[in-house]
Design a binder for these strands. Structure first.
Ligand SMILES: [Zn+2]
Ligand SMILES: [Zn+2]
Ligand SMILES: [Zn+2]
Ligand SMILES: [Zn+2]
Lengths: 139, 139
DNA sequence: AGCAATGTTGAGAACCATTGTCAAACTGCG
DNA sequence: CGCAGTTTGACAATGGTTCTCAACATTGCT
């Protein structure tokens, strides 16, 4: 490799430049506290006067997700939905109607998934766990 | 609510006619013990000499899923994948590489999800829980 | 400021899994 | 056989997501 990487620590694989577009996506995410599709996020940005290409919204959301700054999951139609979340491992309780989301943690569940996987000799684990329902408001 | 169909005859909402195509899909499913996409299932049917339209494969898989005779979940790309499963509620431990699948049950997890949801006043619940990893063979 | 190197953007095309269309073929039941 | 309702399949249409690539922005350097 030829990377120079001045003063940085080791292999700075990618520098995330602060652009107007990325700030707009971050701002839009901050405006929601529930899961939204890329389209909805794109729409909100437009409605706020800013203009960001849809492809850029997708790119930004993906890289934020990889960086662990947003959570991405799929609704029942398989569409990706996104939400800025706390950075610790957690799961979600999501309202099927309005999207209202509660972050939940379950140490016992984490232990259980690991135990089950180990028991069957599976390694390099990951898991998905989401609860869907109708929130008190939507009833 | 308006649901009729008291266990027996009532409003037989749909009669599943045994056609050559539906038998072919069922046979293909029986030939796998791991999750496969509709395309893969369609391919296997073709390779076996049978010929079933892709749309029919989708239709059959969907109705089987609704009937609870197959499980459908989404891989990390959001594509639907299907597998014939036991008819009791369970989750899956899936090999990310070869697809090898283990059905797992966790009464404690079921209780936990219900408790969490109730605690926040959510009703009409459902949940997804899948564990992904690398199976012993694939290591 | 000027400049070169490299990362970023966006309009639109391309992808591709999934669903819709609808006339033709099939099934269950007399 | 003949009818009524169901199912099928070739193909079009959807729609979310990714790709393309030339124009543009940012960074680092002089
Ligand atoms: Zn709600
Ligand atoms: Zn977890
Ligand atoms: Zn494997
Ligand atoms: Zn469960």
């Amino acid at each position: 490799m030829t990377s120079t990487d001045p003063h940085g620590g080791g292999t700075q694989t990618q520098q995330r430049r602060p652009t107007r577009q990325r700030r707009a996506v971050a701002a839009a995410l901050a405006g929601f506290d529930d899961f939204r599709s890329a389209q909805e996020i794109h729409d909100l940005i437009s409605r706020q006067g800013d203009s960001v290409g849809l492809a850029t919204v997708y790119r930004t959301l993906s890289s934020l997700a990889e960086a662990g700054e947003v959570d991405m999951l799929r609704n029942e139609d398989g569409e990706a939905i996104w939400r800025s979340c706390s950075d610790t491992h957690h799961h979600h309780l999501v309202c099927r109607t309005c999207g209202a989301t509660v972050e939940v943690e379950g140490p016992a569940v984490e232990r259980w998934t690991n135990a089950i996987a180990a028991e069957h000799g599976y390694a390099d684990l990951s898991h998905t766990l989401e609860i869907f329902g109708t929130c008190p408001t939507c009833r």
